[in-house]
Nucleic acid binder design. Structure first.
Lengths: 93, 93
DNA sequence: TTGACACGCAAGCCGTCACTTGCCTAACGT
DNA sequence: ACGTTAGGCAAGTGACGGCTTGCGTGTCAA
């Protein structure tokens, strides 16, 4: 299993998660166009594909083959480690 | 303000947060020795200092000067953005 | 069957990041 | 006053990450 934190480190990958939270089962090209329109990000198709690979290795994205399409779905379960590992501890005001 | 996600990307910085969750107001040298003993990490003093700078810029660590000591304290408030930005959405099993 | 479409693989380039190295300042104890 | 201790500054190095480039594979429609 990959590294959740390294996966979250890149702004393009975070934008991909933003899109997948709003709509499940999106293809690579759908995500490319949504990045361009809604986030002003215009990386190449291969770049987005590599980003999705990182997210999938981290367990944050699940994929399903359907014909010639590969559908991407978010899985937020690995993120639950974060508030567990560092519980709320504010500075005394 | 810096980037929380980039700050979390490095394992040494995560180990520093682990130590600061267990004990507040630690100095640079205290954190160095704890990294070595409890996490088998032996980076140099300057390396740890730079990591703490990144954490402070991200708002995850607050510092307080006390004489010749600089005390470091965790602030988990910025982490609350994460479950807010990507709410729980599991894959249907 | 042929062409277009959605996607994968792999090598290479280049910028960023983590770390080191060397020297410096400031605070404390004796 | 002097040496020690805690920490800071800045330039340089090596490696990793994000991106490109070019080509290849499988799927579907006409």
């Amino acid at each position: 299993m990959g590294d959740i934190y390294r996966a979250l480190a890149d702004p393009t990958r975070r934008a991909l998660l933003d899109e997948l939270v709003e709509r499940d089962e999106q293809t690579l090209f759908e995500l490319c166009t949504r990045l361009a329109v809604k986030h002003d990000l215009t990386p190449s198709r291969q770049a987005v594909s590599q980003h999705l690979d990182v997210l999938e290795e981290a367990g944050l994205v699940r994929t399903e083959r359907r014909g010639r399409y590969k559908l991407h779905t978010i899985d937020t379960a690995p993120l639950e480690e974060i508030p567990t590992r560092w519980p709320t501890r504010r500075r005394d005001p």
